[in-house]
Design a protein around this nucleic acid. Structure first.
Lengths: 287, 287
DNA sequence: CGAATAGTGTCTATGAGACATTATTCT
DNA sequence: AGAATAATGTCTCATAGACACTATTCG
């Protein structure tokens, strides 16, 4: 057995590092029933459904990305917000652990999930056990968020092992498991609160990598539903890159990629000419 | 204290994963005094100095990359070759651990070192403790290899903690520390032996990432000495990418990057017109 | 009709690939 | 001179950015 609680300073140097997974999960906006926290104080102010209705902030005009955070309820960094995550059970792949812990916080499965980088500086927590964090980044699409909260991940994942993890290891995980309460809230990436561990650094790196990816890869469509207009896709790119894009050139370049398929249908209920709806196809069109 | 040796099956699921670092260290050729192993059998056949002299394989015509491996001397995977690496001491950054363990195997410090990816599939070793490997990739330049073997890393790194690590953790490290003996040898990446753990997968991924990098970044010059000709730099690119490059266009593109500085000197002792020597500059030339 | 956005066509500058040509050094 | 490689110049084509212009729908 492993005895990990309250290690003395002399004992710490013989303890292997704890390993945890943390996930930066981007979305164009929170799910309607999710809590939204005040940027400055970190106080949960309302759900996204109320907030968006009040402010008139529709995702049509979304110009920023959002991500879920979990409030820690024990030391270290008690009370601060942290990325969803947790320790790695002995029989779970790293990818599975990331997916499961994220689902436990958000109650929904992301549409995309990918490993980002491993952080393990010795300065992360001077008084506690050494912690190595394997960071992931992912994205929630409109469909992922529209689905009702589910207690279990959609894909089959061993989740009973979570409670089997020693308490002392759980203590150092990126965040504690929360049960759909006020300890989970969504934040705009432009207005993040003070974060536990080095999670600010992790988020900065995730945003940087997301921008790199959108320039030479098709990841943006994962923020949308199954069908979308080119204007919607362009707004996703603009939100990620933080700059305006020429609609005409954007259309030409996207269609030249051959990964968009015309569904034949058009947008409904617009106050102007409706746009064609496209679908993403993995297979490039053969010319 | 942590007791990790001979865990029972029921105990294993309560043990936190062991964390180790492994490094894929590329070079245009091994150091002269390094062992070269036979591709098929993994038997150490001679040093690079003898081998290259016999075969007439000069680095001028190098068309493949080489990397150092360490032979394991205990289970699991006893006798197989593995990437240099080891467990993470409590007071060492991940980068430091990678640099130190690589130096312990090669007795030289690499010119470049960067984190690659973290591997942690549960299938890595069914009978042993769960292992998470944080993989690094690096490169040795001509100067790095030309220097005589040094027992300590050139940069100051805490190295006394290595022996403080519990034996059971060392057992699961990427490879055991070798003291410049027959248990360290260099292999061509085209002819690798059977490897321990999932190190074959790690090397494949490292080669793939190296190719990606050379296309939009200046990493190739790190394989060479401080001064080099454009032809030498081109041959490095060709070895990495595995294809021929047009000398004229390569010259134009490299010089347009503004990161090469003309030293004013030229190559010596060529049987033809000598080439200009260039130096790499971090600062782009202002036009 | 006018407003608003969808969608098309075109001009231009830039950069990559191909390759002909000149330059320099050694034997 | 002839061999071998360095170094330069030039042509073409593909692509990105800018932007004018046409099309369609709603109110």
């Amino acid at each position: 057995m492993v005895q990990l609680s309250a290690p003395s300073a002399s004992e710490r140097r013989f303890m292997p590092p704890a390993v945890a997974v943390s996930t930066v999960a981007f979305a164009l906006h929170p799910p309607v029933d999710a809590n939204v926290a005040d940027p400055g104080t970190g106080e949960v102010i309302s759900t996204w459904g109320e907030y968006a209705g009040r402010e008139g902030a529709r995702d049509e005009h979304s110009t920023t990305l959002w991500l879920p955070l979990v409030r820690r309820t024990r030391p270290p960094f008690d009370g601060l917000w942290a990325l969803p995550g947790g320790p790695i059970p002995w029989d779970e792949d790293l990818d599975q652990t990331a997916a499961r812990t994220l689902h436990e916080a958000v109650l929904r499965s992301p549409g995309y999930l990918e490993q980002l980088y491993s952080f393990g500086a010795t300065t992360r927590s001077a008084t506690a056990q050494r912690l190595v964090t394997i960071a992931y980044w992912g994205s929630y699409g409109a469909l992922d968020l529209a689905s009702p909260p589910s207690p279990q991940p959609s894909r089959d994942v061993a989740s009973d092992v979570a409670s089997a993890a020693p308490d002392a290891v759980t203590e150092f995980s990126g965040a504690l498991v929360a049960s759909a309460d006020d300890n989970v809230a969504w934040f705009s990436i432009d207005r993040l609160p003070e974060l536990a561990f080095d999670h600010t650094e992790i988020i900065d790196y995730a945003v940087w990598r997301l921008r790199q990816r959108t320039e030479y890869s098709m990841v943006a469509h994962r923020f949308l539903g199954r069908e979308f207009t080119l204007a919607q896709l362009r707004r996703v790119h603009e939100a990620i890159l933080g700059e305006q894009l020429d609609p005409a050139n954007f259309r030409r370049d996207m269609l030249a990629q051959g990964q968009l398929e015309d569904t034949g249908r058009v947008e409904q209920g617009t106050p102007h000419r409706p746009a064609r709806l496209y679908r993403f196809t993995a297979e490039p069109e053969k010319a």
